[in-house]
Amino acid sequence: SLEGTEKASWLGEQPQFWSKTQVLDWISYQVEKNKYDASAIDFSRCDMDGATLCNCALEELRLVFGPLGDQLHAQLRDLTSS
């Protein structure tokens, strides 16, 4: 749920159509929501749009996002199937 936050830029759009900015917004949101240590994320490797993100295998997401990769992968699957 997104109570208390302004409507996120990526909400209501299919992930494969996200811009690079929307991807970063979504990642930041997941980091906050999961109380994850953002210093463990290599943000220089997050410079990708939604289509690229959706094409990432779980292993790739783990490389870039560490333990949060599993969470991101699961969330993406939910978003693309809805």
Rank of each mutant, 00 (worst) to 15 (best):
Q14I: 07
S9L: 07
T80Q: 15
L11N: 06
D78N: 14
P15V: 06
G12S: 14
V64T: 15
L53M: 11
L24C: 11
V31K: 15
L72N: 00
G69C: 05
L11F: 03
M48C: 01
E32Y: 02
L58T: 06
S9T: 13
Q75M: 13
K33M: 04
S39V: 05
L72Y: 02
Q75P: 02
L68G: 03
T21H: 09
Q14N: 11
Q16N: 05
Y29D: 09
R62E: 05
R45S: 14
L58M: 13
G50E: 00
A57Y: 07
F17P: 00
Q16Y: 03
Q71N: 13
L2I: 15
A57V: 08
T80C: 14
S28F: 10
Q16R: 10
A8T: 15
S28M: 08
E3D: 15
N34Q: 09
D42A: 06
N34E: 08
L2R: 04
L76E: 01
G69W: 02
W18N: 01
K7Q: 10
G66A: 01
C56R: 10
E59L: 06
L76V: 09
G50W: 00
K7Y: 12
R77S: 13
K7H: 11
E60I: 03
R77E: 06
A51T: 11
S9A: 07
E3P: 13
I27C: 09
K20E: 03
E60C: 05
S81H: 08
H73S: 10
D47L: 10
W18T: 00
Q75V: 07
L76C: 02
G4T: 12
S81Y: 02
D42C: 02
A8I: 04
G4C: 14
K33E: 14
K7A: 14
E13Y: 06
E60W: 04
M48V: 05
A38G: 10
S39Q: 08
V64E: 12
D70A: 08
L2Q: 14
E6V: 12
A74F: 14
S82C: 14
C54V: 12
A8S: 14
K33Y: 09
S9Y: 04
R62Y: 10
V23I: 01
S28D: 13
S81I: 13
Q22R: 02
L61M: 08
A57K: 07
G69R: 01
S28W: 08
D78I: 10
L72I: 07
L24V: 14
L2W: 04
C46R: 04
E3N: 15
K35V: 09
E60G: 08
V23F: 01
D37P: 07
Q71I: 14
A74R: 13
L79P: 08
T5F: 11
G4I: 13
R77P: 01
E13D: 06
L53P: 01
Q75H: 11
V23L: 03
F17K: 15
T52W: 10
S28C: 14
L61V: 03
V23M: 03
A74L: 14
L53V: 03
D78H: 10
P15W: 00
A51H: 14
E13K: 03
T5C: 03
L63A: 10
E32M: 14
K35C: 11
L63R: 13
E13A: 07
D37A: 09
M48D: 01
F17I: 11
K7C: 10
G12P: 08
Q75W: 13
K20P: 12
N34T: 08
D78L: 12
C54H: 03
T5L: 14
D47H: 14
N55I: 03
V64L: 09
Q71D: 12
V64Q: 10
L76G: 00
C54D: 01
M48T: 02
F17V: 08
A38F: 07
L68T: 06
Q22T: 11
V31Y: 03
A8M: 15
T5Q: 06
C46N: 08
K33P: 02
Q16S: 12
T5R: 14
I27H: 01
N34S: 12
S81A: 09
Y29V: 06
D25V: 03
G12N: 15
S39N: 15
D25G: 11
T80P: 04
G69Q: 01
Q14K: 09
A51M: 14
A74G: 14
N55Y: 05
G4N: 02
T80G: 04
S39R: 09
L76K: 01
P15N: 01
L76M: 12
D47N: 10
G12R: 09
Q75D: 15
L68M: 08
G4F: 15
D25R: 12
Q14E: 10
F17Q: 15
E32A: 13
L2D: 02
L24F: 15
N55F: 04
K7F: 05
E13I: 10
E3V: 09
A57W: 02
C54K: 05
W10A: 02
Q16W: 15
K33C: 10
C46M: 15
R77V: 06
Q16D: 10
D42N: 09
I41V: 06
V64D: 11
L79T: 02
L72H: 01
L76R: 01
Y29C: 04
K20S: 11
G69Y: 02
C56Q: 08
T80W: 05
T21P: 13
E6H: 05
F65W: 03
L11S: 10
Q71P: 07
K33N: 15
C54N: 05
I41R: 04
P15D: 00
A57C: 08
A40F: 04
P15A: 03
W10R: 03
V64K: 15
Q14R: 14
V23Y: 03
Q30L: 05
C56P: 00
K35N: 14
L58R: 11
K20F: 02
N55D: 12
N34H: 14
Q75C: 15
G50T: 01
E32N: 15
R45W: 12
D37H: 05
A51W: 06
N55G: 10
G69T: 11
A51C: 04
G66D: 01
T52N: 12
E13F: 04
N55M: 10
I27V: 06
M48F: 15
L53T: 01
I27S: 00
D78S: 12
A8K: 09
A74M: 15
D37Y: 05
Q22P: 00
N55V: 07
L63K: 15
E6S: 10
S39Y: 06
E6R: 12
S1W: 04
C54L: 13
S19T: 09
V23W: 00
L63I: 13
S39M: 05
D42F: 01
V31T: 05
R45D: 15
D49L: 03
K35R: 13
M48W: 11
S39K: 11
N55L: 09
L68W: 05
T80I: 03
D49Q: 02
D42L: 04
D25T: 03
T21C: 04
Q30D: 00
L63Q: 11
T80K: 07
R62H: 08
P67E: 13
Q71A: 15
L24W: 03
W10E: 03
A57G: 13
G12D: 12
K7D: 13
R45A: 10
W10H: 04
Q16H: 15
V64A: 09
C54Y: 04
T21N: 14
T52C: 08
L53W: 00
S28Y: 11
T80S: 11
S81L: 09
E60Y: 13
S39C: 06
Q30E: 02
I41L: 15
L61F: 15
F17W: 14
L61S: 01
E32W: 09
D70Q: 06
Q22K: 03
T21V: 06
G12H: 15
P67K: 07
V31M: 11
I27T: 01
V31L: 10
D37T: 11
K35D: 15
A38C: 15
K7M: 11
L53H: 01
K7P: 09
D25S: 09
R77L: 09
S82F: 14
E32D: 10
E32H: 12
E13P: 05
K33T: 07
Y29S: 07
A38Y: 13
L53E: 00
E59A: 12
T52K: 09
C56L: 12
W10T: 02
Q71V: 13
E3L: 04
Q22H: 03
Y29G: 08
L68C: 15
F17G: 13
G12K: 14
W10S: 05
L61E: 01
S82Q: 14
